[in-house]
Simulated assay, not measured.
Amino acid sequence: MPKKSNAEAAPKSDAHNETSGPQPFKNLISPAVVRKLAELVREAYPDFKHRRFSKRCLEKLDSLELKARAQHIGEMLWEELPSEPETALDIVRRAIESLPTLEEDTSFDTWLFFPLNSLLSAHGTKSWKASMKLIPEVTKRFTAEFGIRVFLNTDHDRILPHLEKWAADPDPNLRRLVSEGTRSRLPWGEQIPAFKKDPSYVLPLLETLRDDPSEYVRRSVANNLNDISKDNPQVTLKIARRWLQDATPQRRRLVKHACRTLIKKGDAECLKLLGYGSPKIAIRHFSVSPESIQLGEKLKLSVELESTQSAEQQLIIDYRFHLVKASGSTAPKVFKGAIATLPGKSKKTVIKYFHLKPISTRRYYTGSNSVDLLINGKNLATVTFHLTVP
């Protein structure tokens, strides 16, 4: 997603009201977004039936979630444009070219570009020529990481020259498109099965961007490598080992972020590569309080560590929750804890709070749950607590 979302940049939009508080995430694509898009397209295409377009979009907008709203608006827009794909896509490009880029102004309501990603996904391959002109313009103002994926799945060799060109572009948003758009497992995006099976296509592009001057771009490179680690862990480890040679602090941060899934899994090779060996410590105390909570309350985890060696140790402390599912069984979920330096023969107390509250991506159920204490990937202690869901 872009650097600054509409929720940050435009707090007075339909998605947020100062008196009523935050609204559902889907409201980021609001009636105001539809009206603005209609206005822009009408300026580029005077014959555009803007009132009909707006009415058709708004008739079912309220019943749809965010992604479905984007798809619905994108489809309604396509149906109101000329039937010749190159002409239609060129109209969309001209409609947005007058808008400020992310580098110029982050206050604009950028969520109107999400439907344009949907339009590209559904119809962009009908005119590659026009789409290759539209994608950069969308990227400079929001992101086209979702809209580009259909081209990668259709014919990734055909789009490669464009990716290589964008990787050298002065605009960091276009450079980031190359690393983020080619992620095999992009959240919210269409997966790319070919890259999950064989990521070699992507690797030269990541090599080009690994020392990019923009942290925004480097973070995206790390995200791509992390995706690769889920299907091809040895590829990520091989790259990490090579990139850590004579690495700058910035590149070391990139590699560590790229290895976060392997770290959570306790991959011994990865942890050793990053300087986290087998922990030489004793757990003097590991507790949870309260031992019984209601959904919506906070859980406190407290651990007292004692080093059993004279040398200093670098520790990654994580917590693996085994949460009750609807079936009564449990499923593991690892949450980040802390990164700590433990001097030789010393003690350290680490306290972590977890707020167990309702969220859209996770359901909680009444029952007994457990938490494993993971230090450098090793499970060193376990506590249990009871959660009651009203």
Rank of each mutant, 00 (worst) to 15 (best):
A10D: 14
R141V: 14
E79R: 08
E86L: 12
R363S: 15
Q294D: 13
P390Q: 02
S310K: 14
D372P: 05
L134S: 07
D169A: 09
H386G: 03
V138H: 07
P100C: 10
K348S: 11
R35Y: 15
G337D: 09
L271A: 06
K298D: 15
V389I: 05
N379M: 13
L152F: 10
L315W: 03
L237H: 01
A68K: 15
Y276I: 02
S131P: 08
A282N: 09
P249V: 03
W243F: 12
F146E: 03
A44N: 01
T236N: 00
L315G: 03
Q71R: 13
L112A: 11
E269A: 14
K140H: 13
K348F: 08
R253K: 15
E43R: 13
I317R: 02
L342V: 11
D267C: 04
V371C: 04
E164R: 10
K230F: 04
S30F: 04
R56Q: 10
L120A: 06
T139G: 01
V288K: 01
S131E: 06
K300A: 01
L273C: 07
A70W: 06
L380G: 03
L28F: 15
L119P: 04
E8I: 15
E75Q: 14
V350W: 05
T308I: 10
L323I: 11
T106Y: 05
I293C: 08
Y353R: 12
Q313N: 11
F195H: 00
W188F: 11
L374D: 07
G296H: 12
F354L: 12
I316F: 13
Q191V: 11
L274M: 05
S179T: 14
K238D: 08
L295T: 08
N226S: 13
P115C: 02
I29R: 02
M132Y: 11
L40K: 08
A381Y: 03
L274N: 00
A340C: 15
S287N: 12
L152W: 08
F151R: 05
K352Q: 07
R52N: 13
L58N: 14
E297P: 00
K129S: 09
S121E: 15
Q250H: 08
T208A: 09
P390G: 06
Y365H: 06
T366L: 06
L301S: 04
Q250C: 09
S327A: 11
T208C: 13
S327H: 06
N153E: 13
D47E: 14
T106M: 05
A381K: 07
L134W: 00
G266T: 00
A222P: 06
